[in-house]
Design a protein around this nucleic acid. Structure first.
Length: 265
DNA sequence: GGAATTTGACCTGA
DNA sequence: TCAGGTCAAATTCC
């Protein structure tokens, strides 16, 4: 996912400045914890509330709002008018330690099972922490009947980057953990020119074929800011390379093969 | 006892 | 004026 998602994507950039900082459609997509390169403002209480609309933010829809490769600390909860579900407020756990102003709002959107959450991220991570477990990346190539789609599943071992306490809390918040969860699925459908990113709390349905490989040796994603910015998360690893190809160690995948002349992935 | 969460109050922006 | 975002004391959990 190297370019901003098309209309209807799972990510919506609410702040025009964030989009501008991201560059044109061909530029690297800036992920949560990404590379906006926007310096956080002074963190005094007054300043922190000033000009909310100017803060870089982007929206993600996910089934697992708490698993995004970073540690978050809840600092508030608010019932929102015209919304059945309360809005939960989180900030980076390293806010004090590393002056990381990254924060996110989590709001459940429906009663589905699993429920869908809208997560609004604000500011990129400046903590440079990479609490990423060694992911078990599974590319699930499509059965012909399902169209030209690619599924990539991230089976995180989880425990490596968060303590048991938080794991327990997150399980409690959502639902009992399935073995190996969380997992993330990326779906690229070159026919519809749409792609979705979702994270699932449970296993994906079986597919016709699959192959497994590790992300070990995956080159660091190109950063649009000098100095590297945020840690190299599981999420980042995929998004960066996709404009050209997905590259996992010795393996590479060309999503546009057979679909020449269209790089709108 | 330390750290995280809860929750009511306060403040800002629309 | 009010809804939303944040603070901070109180509470809970390990």
């Amino acid at each position: 996912m190297a370019s901003p998602p098309p209309k209807g994507e799972s990510f919506d950039f609410e702040d025009p400045r964030a989009q501008e900082a991201m560059g044109s459609a061909s530029a690297s997509y800036s992920p949560p914890g990404g590379v906006f390169g926007i310096s956080p403002p002074e963190s005094s209480r007054r300043d922190s509330r000033k000009r909310r609309k100017d803060r870089p933010s982007w929206v993600k829809h996910t089934f697992t709002p708490h698993f995004d490769g970073h540690l978050w600390r809840k600092y508030g909860q608010k019932n929102i008018k015209d919304s059945v579900f309360p809005r939960l407020y989180y900030r980076c756990s390293y806010r004090e330690d590393k002056q990381c102003l990254a924060s996110k709002l989590v709001q459940q959107e429906n009663h589905e099972d699993p429920p869908l959450f809208k997560v609004t991220y604000t500011y990129e991570h400046t903590c440079n922490t990479a609490p990423v477990p060694t992911p078990d990346v599974v590319a699930e190539l499509p059965a012909p009947a399902t169209g030209d789609a690619l599924f990539l599943r991230f089976n995180s071992t989880g425990a490596g980057h968060r303590d048991a306490h938080r794991m327990e809390q997150e399980r409690h918040y959502q639902q009992p953990a399935a073995p190996g969860w969380p997992s993330m699925m990326l779906s690229f459908d070159s026919n519809s020119q749409q792609h979705e990113q979702c994270t699932f709390p449970s296993e994906l349905p079986p597919t016709a074929s699959s192959s497994s490989f590790s992300t070990e040796g995956l080159p660091a994603p190109p950063s649009t800011t000098d100095g590297g910015g945020d840690g190299f998360s599981t999420w980042d690893s995929l998004r960066y390379g996709l404009n050209d190809h997905v590259h996992f160690g010795d393996h590479s995948y060309l999503p546009n093969s057979g679909n020449d002349g269209d790089d709108n992935y």
